[in-house]
């Protein structure tokens, strides 16, 4: 391992968005999502504006929409929950396509779906345009406590270690005619999980020891001096939340 750090969510490209400093992107994404969440549930066109702004950002980042959509499947259980809401919520009922559903439930579901989808796409765009190492630097610059950033750093590194270790173990099991689909093999699978934990830990521990041996004290040295942020970059970073804020303000004025 050691070097397999490009995470699977990252989409390699050299766009304006990729080049933006990580802390600016995190702040921008955070601001945008907060505004999306603050958008009242009855509104319609502000959500369209939010989506349009996000699509422009995706275009500027040169990340194909199909790439993000494929990864948006994390939203599926959430969609299932939103779809169930009109049926389980109380309140006045309305008929939709011959089904009697709760009206407040329907409105809440629509708003949750819109907010959820926008949130997922924003997060995925951030992940697609930011290397994990840069993300850590960005969080540190946003004053996230060093210990949390350190744990997160190990987590980012371990995801690859654990995945590689699991692949090796499953090759070893398959080579000895193990079939994970057969229920009588499930206890083996469960115990493998404990072994995976110890093995991944020992692998990661060796990497950590090598780091300690070279004077590591808890934070990666930032080798390159932080690049100066130009006004154009600040503008680009502020664009997404600004558009969302304008949409919200417009909604408040125009109704």
């Amino acid at each position: 391992m050691g070097a397999e750090h490009g995470h699977t969510l990252h989409y390699h490209a050299h766009s304006l968005v990729h080049r933006l400093p990580a802390h600016l992107k995190i702040a921008s994404a955070l601001g945008f999502v907060l505004l999306v969440v603050a958008t009242p549930r009855g509104a319609t066109w502000p959500y369209a504006v939010h989506l349009l702004a996000l699509l422009v950002a995706m275009r500027a980042a040169r990340v194909p929409a199909a790439y993000l959509l494929k990864r948006a499947v994390v939203e599926v259980p959430f969609v299932a929950f939103a779809l169930a809401m009109p049926f389980i919520a109380t309140g006045p009922r309305v008929d939709v396509l011959g089904l009697s559903v709760s009206e407040p439930g329907l409105v809440a579901a629509g708003a949750l779906l819109a907010k959820g989808t926008l949130g997922v796409l924003t997060a995925l765009l951030l992940a697609a345009t930011t290397e994990p190492a840069d993300l850590l630097v960005g969080l540190a610059r946003l004053r996230v406590p060093a210990r949390l950033v350190e744990i997160m750093g190990f987590m980012v590194r371990y995801v690859d270690v654990v995945a590689a270790e699991w692949r090796r173990m499953s090759v070893a099991r398959t080579s000895r005619l193990f079939d994970a689909r057969s229920p009588r093999h499930w206890p083996v699978l469960a115990r493998s999980l404990g072994v995976l934990f110890v093995r991944s830990y020992e692998r990661g521990e060796r990497v950590h020891l090598a780091m300690l041996s070279r004077g590591y004290t808890g934070s990666l040295p930032t080798l390159a001096a932080p690049a100066a942020i130009g006004p154009a970059q600040v503008l680009a970073g502020a664009a997404l939340p600004t558009v969302a804020a304008l949409a919200l303000a417009g909604q408040a004025v125009l109704g």
Binding site: M1, G2, A3, H5, R157, R203, R206, V207, L209, A210, M211, L212, S213, R214, G215
Partner: peptide
Amino acid sequence: IRRRVGIVFQDPDDQLF
């Protein structure tokens, strides 16, 4: 001590990250 003692570990993949 860790500056004075330079250890090259057995598996270079543990060392290069």
